Deep mutational scan, measured.
Amino acid sequence: TYYTVKSGDTANKIAAQYGVSVANLRSWNGISGDLIFVGQKLIVKKG
């Protein structure tokens, strides 16, 4: 599943929404920190 980042989103918020850990969200998308951008497409695997 892909999720498009919206204004006000955070890695924590997206992870919680899908029931996954922030560490997994980072791993699936090659993100090292919490910096995400509006319009960015993230791979999300439901927990």
Rank of each mutant, 00 (worst) to 15 (best):
Q17K: 13
Y18H: 12
N29P: 01
Y2I: 11
V20W: 03
A16M: 12
N12P: 11
D34C: 10
V5P: 02
N12Q: 15
V22W: 07
L35T: 13
L25P: 00
N29V: 01
G19M: 08
Q17M: 15
D9A: 01
S27A: 14
A16F: 10
I36F: 09
K6T: 08
Y18K: 03
V38K: 06
T4I: 15
G33N: 11
Y18F: 15
V38Q: 07
L25A: 00
W28V: 03
V22F: 05
L42P: 01
K41F: 07
S32K: 14
D34W: 07
D34P: 06
K45L: 12
G39L: 04
W28L: 05
V44Q: 01
K46S: 11
T10N: 07
S7W: 13
Y3E: 01
G19E: 08
V44H: 01
G8T: 06
T1D: 11
S21A: 07
Q40M: 11
K41L: 13
A15Q: 02
A15D: 00
V5R: 00
I14H: 00
F37A: 09
D34I: 08
Q40L: 07
K45H: 12
S21K: 06
G30D: 11
L42N: 00
V5L: 01
K46A: 13
G30R: 09
V44R: 00
S7P: 15
Q17W: 13
Y2S: 06
I14F: 02
T10A: 03
G19K: 09
T10W: 03
G8M: 05
W28C: 04
V38R: 05
G33E: 10
K6N: 06
R26L: 15
I36T: 04
K6D: 04
L42V: 06
N12R: 14
Y2Q: 06
I36C: 04
G33T: 09
L35E: 15
Y2H: 08
D34E: 10
N12V: 15
K13G: 13
Q17D: 10
Q40C: 06
Q40S: 07
L35S: 13
G19S: 08
G19T: 05
G19Q: 09
N24P: 01
N29Q: 02
A15F: 02
T10I: 04
R26Q: 11
G33K: 07
S7D: 14
K6P: 01
Y18N: 07
S32I: 15
K13T: 14
Y18Q: 06
G19W: 05
A11H: 07
G39W: 06
N24T: 13
A16R: 11
I36G: 02
G30W: 07
K45E: 10
K45I: 11
S27I: 13
N24W: 09
T4A: 06
G33M: 14
T1S: 11
S32L: 13
L35Y: 12
G47T: 12
G39S: 04
G8V: 03
D9V: 02
W28D: 03
Y2N: 05
A23R: 08
N12W: 14
T4L: 09
G19R: 08
Q40D: 06
K46T: 12
N24L: 14
G47S: 12
W28R: 00
V22A: 07
S21W: 04
S27P: 00
K41C: 14
V38H: 06
Y2K: 05
V5Y: 02
Y2L: 09
T1K: 11
I36N: 02
L35V: 12
D9G: 00
Y18P: 00
V44I: 14
K45M: 13
S7V: 15
G19V: 04
Q40T: 07
G33F: 09
K13H: 09
S27W: 10
K45G: 12
V20Q: 04
G33W: 06
N12S: 15
N29A: 02
G8S: 06
G30M: 09
G30A: 10
A15V: 02
W28S: 02
R26D: 03
Y18L: 12
F37W: 11
G30C: 12
N12G: 13
T10F: 03
D34H: 08
